[in-house]
Amino acid sequence: MTKHERHKEHYTGPDEVAISSRMNWLRAGVLGANDGIVSMAALLVGVAAAAPSEGALLTAGIAGISAGALSMGIGEYVSVSSQRDAEKAQIEREKIWQDTRPEWELQQLVELNKKTGMSEEVATVAAAEQMDHDALAIHALMHLGIDPDEFTNPWVAGFASLVAFTVGGMIPTLTILLAPESWAIPATFVAVIVALAITGLSSARVAHSSKRKALVRNVVGGTLAMLVTYGIGDLLGTHVL
């Protein structure tokens, strides 16, 4: 554990530090699974409404999961890599500023401290102590909004998104393929609603946020997506195909 990590855990508590470090996993994992569930369910009920054959559904399922998982994984990797590069570049500039204009950096920290409610005298003393403790870390946090000890690994984020999307997408895919044809679409709706409820509650639990809001957002959003694509598929199947 670095000096900055020990300092942060001392003032925020280990549970708050854990929540901060888990947020990237929440986004790449739970939300990746949620995307897989919703997008594959919407795709498959639309195909089922237009051309409800097992071959068409199997093809759509395999193609959809493959394309979606790869897109999610690569997109997450590129996004996190870009963010990581930008943050590292800012940190490097901050290092240069610490060496070339220390007085200015100290005064900047005084002003930032004053914005938190400190008086001029207290802010000046605090800034001097903060600079002595870890000048780069405190400026990165207060001036740039970057935690230099918590850069996200783009490979981990990309792989987590790929796997999560695949696992999530398998739920509606297996349901619609294995259920009796007359019950395939209703069964998929039920399976997806249950799965979305689980991912919503899981994300709320990890983030310590409102479980009710997360549950409603997930279920309502996913259900609307399926209804819309089912309607489009039914329209195409009836009037076009």
Rank of each mutant, 00 (worst) to 15 (best):
K95S: 10
S210R: 00
G158F: 00
E5S: 12
V30I: 11
I176P: 09
L215Q: 04
I91L: 08
G75R: 02
H208T: 06
T59C: 03
K88E: 13
M226E: 08
S39C: 02
G36F: 05
D149E: 12
L58S: 07
E181Y: 06
V78A: 02
P154R: 03
F165E: 07
D35M: 01
H143M: 13
V156N: 07
S203W: 08
Y230A: 09
M40H: 03
A48F: 13
A60E: 09
E103N: 15
N113T: 03
N153E: 07
L106E: 11
A164G: 01
A42C: 05
D15E: 14
W104C: 09
A50P: 04
I146G: 09
F165V: 06
S21T: 15
I65Q: 08
G55K: 04
L57A: 02
G168C: 09
I96S: 15
Q108D: 15
A127Q: 00
D15V: 11
S53H: 03
A128D: 11
A127L: 06
D35C: 04
W25K: 14
S161F: 02
L112G: 02
L178H: 10
T175G: 01
E129R: 07
V17P: 13
W25T: 14
S21E: 15
T152E: 13
I19W: 10
D35E: 01
A127R: 03
N24P: 06
E121Q: 14
T199A: 05
T166R: 08
Q107F: 07
W183D: 15
A33M: 10
D35Q: 03
E54Q: 14
H239R: 07
S66K: 05
L31T: 10
N34G: 08
F165I: 02
Y230Q: 09
S203N: 12
R84K: 11
V216H: 00
R205A: 12
V47K: 02
R212V: 15
A67G: 02
R101E: 15
S21M: 14
A48L: 14
G237P: 03
E94Q: 11
I146Y: 04
A49C: 13
V125C: 08
I65E: 09
A204D: 04
A41F: 09
T2L: 11
A51R: 12
R22M: 15
I232R: 05
S20Y: 13
A187E: 04
S202Q: 14
E92P: 04
M226N: 01
Q108I: 11
L26E: 10
A18P: 09
V30Y: 03
V110C: 01
P52N: 13
L57P: 01
M131T: 07
G68V: 05
S53I: 00
L144D: 13
M118V: 00
A214P: 01
A137S: 11
T223Q: 08
A207S: 11
E111L: 10
P148T: 01
S53G: 03
L112S: 00
R22E: 14
L136W: 01
Y230P: 08
A225I: 05
G117H: 05
E5C: 08
G158N: 03
T152K: 05
S20V: 11
A157R: 01
A191E: 05
V220T: 10
G168F: 14
R205P: 10
T12N: 15
K114Y: 06
T100F: 10
P102E: 02
T100N: 06
L106R: 10
A126M: 09
A157F: 05
N24R: 07
T173W: 03
A86D: 06
K213E: 15
A164V: 03
F189N: 04
